[in-house]
Design a protein around this nucleic acid. Structure first.
Length: 541
RNA sequence: GGCGGAAUAGCUCAGUUGGCUAGAGCAUGCGGUUCAUACCCGCAGUGUCGGCGGUUCAAAUCCGUUUUCCGCUACCA
């Protein structure tokens, strides 16, 4: 039986369309999923939407539709976006799905029965005009942070989750499992800010709004966010349903990919819930960094966030996916600018990879009429290429285990550079003038074609479309030479390569011109406002 | 306030447990080449590794201190 691999994204809050920050998490998860599939794992890749809560209820009301109608339209849009970005998820869970709703009710009941959930009183500050609860901390000088008016103390009967009960076990688990929280700096934040000072019990029900999962045995209450949202990772697999085969097969998750702002929920509340349910904990939570906008104030409230749809339509999925994973270190924040994006596309994709393919295919066409002869003679530079091809595969494998996407791509690109250098070293245009040396020339072309085959397999997880273009132009049809195993040794491609010249894969972009055009679409704010603004800050994961 | 990060070439960043003339990519300059998407290849740089003090034969790397920036600080997701 194949080894399983279960990877998840956060479930996104469909209060509005998603932005590039959400795409970032999802592209990363998709890439790791594709990579693991390529390595022969039985992969489950889960994404979805977290659809309940007061905010959605309010927006729907403003729009004059039901909450369900409202989220339906956003969810359709999200699914289209993932299709556009070539996200190959296995399951798309919605917290309004029947299977999820029923399972959450069972989970809630189970926790109540075990004494992990108890009824008590929640005391909060309520702003009547805004119809919102606030905590003491959220208040601005004792007033409503939204409208500035007075708030009143309101007591609400609520259910609480006994988070405090699991404090010691959590500390132990986190400290004993080095890879549980990644990157490790997040681990210290959790321990010092929450676990060491002591955990407070968590309010897990509300009566102030209706748009949520009703508590089965107490109909006035709805299950509050985190019990609802976090459960998705197991309800999507059929936990607490009639058919829990997938749960038994895939749980615990190998990695939950989340933005760093929700690491807390995933490393404290979620494990505590699982402990209370007597279920195994996920193996790893990876809190990636944010994309920071430099030169543009991007926040949802301003309505000028970076729209992934526009970027993809303009520059292509593979370019955007490549950029996201290459430019930024996965665990850290990174500056997103249009200029960086365009520079990356030009230098790495157009000049290095695209041009390598183009010149290789061009020469096979020009010197051999599109088909290499069987008779080929090796040269002194071949060995270096062959050895490096082997090394690169190992490097990519090692980086991918640690989710170092950028490092993996850098390794692949150093091989691409090596291939471009090989062309210079062997000077095919000189050999082409000499009929006697056709066999040497043919070998050079073969080494390049075979290298491109290997490159095309290596980039598969990151860029789903480019490999197809490479395969078409080099006439690679046999699926046996598109596997990961097939790139462990140099020479999988038959010697008599025939080519089919195609269009340029990554056209060069006139950066100055393009930037000017973009600026027209998105007005640049005053320099003084340029202060970095996280585009996915604390919103809607 | 508490806790945790970051500060390295013009720009974006690498630099495991202290040991190299401190690196890469981009941008810049010069040279080469012409198969290719004015591409590719080579060479050349510049750096008080935030400041100060200390440990050491040796510190970007460890310790102390200081400056600036950033993150987390629980029931909004």
């Amino acid at each position: 039986m194949k080894k399983t691999f279960y990877v998840t994204t956060p479930i996104y809050y469909p209060s509005d369309k998603l932005h590039i920050g959400h795409s970032y998490s999802t592209v990363a998860a998709d890439t790791i999923a594709r990579y693991k599939r390529l390595r022969g794992f039985d992969v489950k890749f889960l994404t979805g939407t977290d659809e309940h809560g007061q905010k959605i209820e309010r927006i729907a009301k403003e729009k004059g539709v039901t909450p369900k109608q409202y989220v339906d339209t956003i969810v359709d849009w999200i699914k289209d976006l993932w299709k556009l970005m070539d996200i190959e998820y296995d399951i798309f869970i919605r917290t309004t799905d029947d299977i999820h709703v029923k399972a959450v009710q069972k989970i809630f009941k189970k926790l109540y029965d075990s004494g992990d959930i108890y009824k008590s009183e929640y005391e909060g500050k309520y702003c009547t005009p805004c119809e919102t609860f606030f905590t003491e901390r959220q208040l601005v000088e004792g007033k409503c942070p939204d409208c500035g008016r007075d708030v009143e103390t309101v007591k609400e009967e609520s259910y609480f989750f006994k988070l405090s009960r699991y404090q010691d076990r959590l500390i132990k688990h986190i400290e004993e499992n080095e890879h549980f929280i990644q990157p490790s700096t997040r681990k210290n934040e959790m321990i010092n800010n929450f676990l060491k000072p002591g955990l407070e019990d968590l309010c897990v029900s509300r009566t102030s709004f209706k748009w949520g999962i009703p508590v089965e045995f107490d109909p006035g209450h709805v299950v509050y966010v985190w019990i609802d949202a976090l459960s998705n990772y197991i309800t999507a697999l059929g936990y607490a349903s009639a058919d829990d085969a997938d749960y038994k097969k895939y749980w615990p998750a190998d990695v939950h990919i989340v933005g760093k702002e929700i690491v807390r929920f995933h490393t404290i509340i979620w494990p505590a819930m699982l402990m209370a349910l007597n279920e195994p904990l996920p193996k790893q939570i990876f809190g990636h960094g944010w994309l920071i906008i430099d030169g543009g104030k991007m926040s949802k409230s301003k309505g000028n966030v970076v729209d992934p749809q526009i970027l993809v339509e303009k520059y292509g999925v593979d370019s955007i996916r490549y950029f996201l994973l290459r430019e930024f270190a996965f665990g850290q924040d990174g500056n997103f600018t249009n200029e960086l994006l365009l520079k990356r596309i030009n230098s790495d994709l157009a000049n290095d990879l695209g041009n390598l393919l183009s010149r290789t295919v061009g020469m096979i066409d020009k010197y051999f009429g599109g088909a290499l002869p069987a008779e080929q003679t090796a040269n002194g530079f071949d060995q270096d290429i062959i050895e490096m091809a082997k090394t690169v595969v190992q490097q990519v494998e090692s980086h991918m285990e640690k989710m170092l996407f950028s490092d993996a791509l850098a390794a692949i690109w150093s091989f691409i550079s090596r291939c471009n250098k090989y062309v210079d070293e062997t000077t095919p245009w000189v050999l082409a003038k000499d009929e006697e040396r056709k066999a040497e020339l043919a070998n050079i072309m073969y080494v390049l074609a075979e290298s491109l085959r290997i490159i095309s397999v290596l980039i598969c997880p990151f860029m789903p479309n480019t490999p197809k273009a490479i395969e078409t132009q080099l006439n690679i049809k046999d699926s046996a030479i598109k596997t990961w195993d097939s790139i462990q040794t140099f020479g999988g491609l038959g010697r008599q390569v025939t080519i089919a010249k195609g269009a340029v894969v990554f056209p060069r972009i006139d950066i100055a011109k393009e930037l000017e055009a973009i600026e027209k679409d998105i007005p640049t704010p005053e320099k003084s406002e340029v202060k970095e603004t996280p585009i996915n800050k604390k919103e809607d994961e």
